[in-house]
Every structure is written in structure tokens, then in C-alpha cells.
Amino acid sequence: MKLAVFVSDYRNTVETLERLKPEKLGIILVGNGVYHATVKEKGNASPLLEKSADFYALSEDLETRGLSSSHVNSKVKVVNYGDVVDLLFNNYEKTAWL
């Protein structure tokens, strides 16, 4: 199964994601979830980015928080709403919202 998980919050604990074992995983960071793509704690990136997945962050939510592509971890691709729609229809089958 190809699963797109929307992460809409910034929490250090990501147990729910640990339990998900799809064939293909996409993690789409929206809302406060975009902080996973930019924040460093004690010099380390978010543990979320260690998962084997394709990572995306919503550009509008980055900008709303005063962040730009230059702040974003290189593992994460910055996308807009239209890109998210294309990802849903073309790259993934199921979705989840965390």
C-alpha cells in the first residue's frame, strides 16, 4: 500500500508513524508539522526525518511561519497545494492525518 501521512503538529514523539509499515510512505508536513522540516534541537534534525519515506512540506505553511526553503532540511521537498493534490492522486493510494 502507498500511504501519504499528513503530519499537522510538531511533537517529538512519532510513535504512530513507527507502527505504520506501508510499501511506500510519503510524509506531508502541514500546519505546525512543517517545523519537523526546519527545527534543530541540540544540533539534530527532527527524528521524524530518519524514517525511510519521501518528505514534503507545504510552502504556504512555511511562509506563514516566516520560514523559507533555505530553512528546510535537504531531505524535504517544498510543495504547494496543487502539488499535494497531484501526490494524492498519482503517488499514493491511502491517507492518514496525524
Partner: peptide
Amino acid sequence: SMNLDFAVKLSAAALEKGH
């Protein structure tokens, strides 16, 4: 609610794409 905003904006983007 950010989630409600998100839902409406995603709807707009999907309509824009012809869905």
C-alpha cells in the same frame, strides 16, 4: 482552526486541477 483552513484550501486546489 488550521485544519479547517487546510481542508478548504486543499478542496480549492483539487477543484482547480479538475477533480
